[in-house]
């Protein structure tokens, strides 16, 4: 569904991505692991053309989206939805208006249908009945879940999650992990989950990609990652910084 070929990205003076090569297959859940600041969010933003490659290619359904103009990316963005790390809710709108936004943009006019689908999306993220709240009155975890509701309400074929569980309490984390699996099973959604939370990774992943120093360092099943003797992977999985008191 998405293939990335020799992707380089320089932001300011920093060479963030240094030749990323990867493939996301239709229907799978692929987890992208890596240390904070290693370029996971930057990589994810390339998948829907929010950032343009400095060099290399990003293909979505065999179309090179690096070559497309902003106005030509609409079709791709209907297929691929993204959940931002911060939730990125529109702060001048209520929760309901936020979630209804993609529906209205898609031309849905029927008030009944809109409010039903908003309620359904909120229920999926465990926030039933929170329609009237403003984003500023929500906790970080709730904002993220409303952001997720806004992403799934228009039923994209592929969902990109940028740290969906970071900063959530253990129970909310668990319910998001289940939600990601559920969406994939029921709706055959292709998912890319960026995280540094091992629990989310092992719970949701069909396949894990480990990003290190701007390149794909490891690619394989969760079991293969567990079994790996590579010190870089071991330290990350076990959470060792190599320091002692």
């Amino acid at each position: 569904m998405i293939s990335v070929r020799n992707l380089h990205k320089t932001l300011g003076t920093q060479h963030v991505l240094r030749g990323v090569q990867l493939e996301i297959r239709r229907g799978e859940t692929c987890v992208v692991l890596g240390r904070s600041g290693c370029g996971k969010s930057v990589l994810l933003k390339h998948f829907i053309g929010l950032l343009k490659p400095s060099s290399g290619q990003v293909l979505v359904d065999n179309e090179d989206i690096g070559a497309l103009h902003e106005r030509q990316l609409g079709a791709i963005r209907k297929k691929v939805g993204i959940l931002f790390q911060s939730g990125a809710l529109f702060d001048s709108m209520t929760v309901e208006e936020n979630i209804a936004f993609p529906l209205r943009e898609a031309g849905v006019r029927d008030r009944r249908e809109i409010s039903d689908r908003v309620a359904e999306a909120l229920e999926m993220v465990d926030l039933a009945g929170e329609q009237a709240k403003m984003p500023e009155n929500l906790s970080g975890g709730m904002r993220k879940r409303v952001g997720l509701a806004r992403t799934i309400v228009s039923r994209p074929a592929c969902i990109l999650y940028d740290e969906p569980t970071t900063g959530l309490d253990p129970i909310a984390t668990d319910s998001i992990n289940h939600l990601i699996r559920r969406l994939q099973k029921r709706l055959q959604v292709t998912s890319v989950v960026v995280t540094h939370d091992m629990k989310t990774a092992f719970h949701t992943a069909d396949r894990i990609i480990f990003l290190h120093e701007g390149r794909v360092y490891f690619e394989g099943t969760p079991d293969a990652l567990h079994a790996s003797a590579d010190p870089v992977l071991q330290d990350f999985v076990e959470g060792r910084s190599g320091e002692s008191d």
């Binding site: 829907i48 929010l50 990316l73 609409g74 963005r77 931002f84 911060s86 990125a88 809710l89 943009e105």
Partner: peptide, 12 residues
């Protein structure tokens, strides 16, 4: 706050 990116990601 990434709201502009959010707009773009929703095709607006």
């Amino acid at each position: 706050t990434e709201q502009i990116d959010a707009l773009r990601s929703l095709g607006v």
